[in-house]
């Protein structure tokens, strides 16, 4: 219970601090405050999808349907955070680069992530039998995740990127942010991560209750 109160107080303090402290990036100005939310959302999106892939691997190894439930739950959360990161990034792109969508490599990769998990949910809708649905969608999610390194690490070397490489650390691994910006940013990162695990825990408990009810009915 105590950590939920702590999360609430921390989240409130972080949001207030993100508005009352000086803007983190002087050239872009006030709108650069979106960075306190945009990067943690993108981080949660990647974390959630990676967790989903790990659960898919565990399902294929053990064939226990609970792992498939966890994989879907975290993929759903990842999809929500992915949408949030896309929308906040798109608004920021309009202000910083002049248009909502530029096919910058990061934008391309987030678009492909949305397509992958859109296809993942479409595939789950197309298979009725639960075991087969779990196996097929698990294989697809692992197979699709294999292409992500190509998008994130290799593609920016072929197509030039607008995203700054030095928004967190510069080339000599020194922090480029001021001290107050750094504190708020890492607090936001930590708070979003706790929020994600709480949401995952809640949807896992709901998923288990649904399974219990199905077992009672059958």
């Amino acid at each position: 219970m105590w950590w939920k109160i702590l999360l609430f107080v921390g989240m409130t303090a972080m949001i207030i601090a993100s508005y009352v402290t000086p803007a983190p990036q002087q050239q872009i100005g006030e709108s650069s405050r979106i960075f306190y939310h945009h990067i943690p959302q993108a981080w949660i999106c990647v974390l959630a999808f990676a967790t989903s892939m790990v659960y898919s691997i565990r399902y294929l190894r053990s064939r226990r349907i609970e792992f498939d439930d966890r994989a879907v739950e975290t993929a759903r959360l990842g999809f929500v955070f992915c949408l949030l990161a896309t929308v906040t990034g798109s608004i920021f792109a309009r202000i910083a680069w002049g248009s909502f969508w530029n096919w910058d490599p990061r934008e391309t990769s987030v678009f492909v992530l949305l397509l992958i998990y859109g296809a993942y949910f479409a595939l789950r809708g197309a298979v009725q039998e639960p075991d087969r649905r779990a196996a097929l969608s698990g294989v697809y999610s692992i197979f699709a995740f294999v292409t992500v390194p190509f998008l994130i690490f290799v593609l920016p070397r072929i197509v030039p990127s607008l995203h700054p490489d030095d928004s967190i650390v510069d080339s000599s691994m020194e922090f480029t942010m001021g001290p107050s910006v750094r504190v708020i940013f890492f607090a936001s990162l930590a708070l979003y991560t706790v929020l994600y695990f709480w949401m995952l825990n809640l949807s896992g408990r709901i998923g288990r209750l649904v399974r219990v009810r199905e077992d009672l009915e059958s």
Partner: peptide, 8 residues
């Protein structure tokens, strides 16, 4: 299903 995988 193929398009996102073939995109890169």
């Amino acid at each position: 299903l193929s398009f996102p995988i073939l995109m890169p």
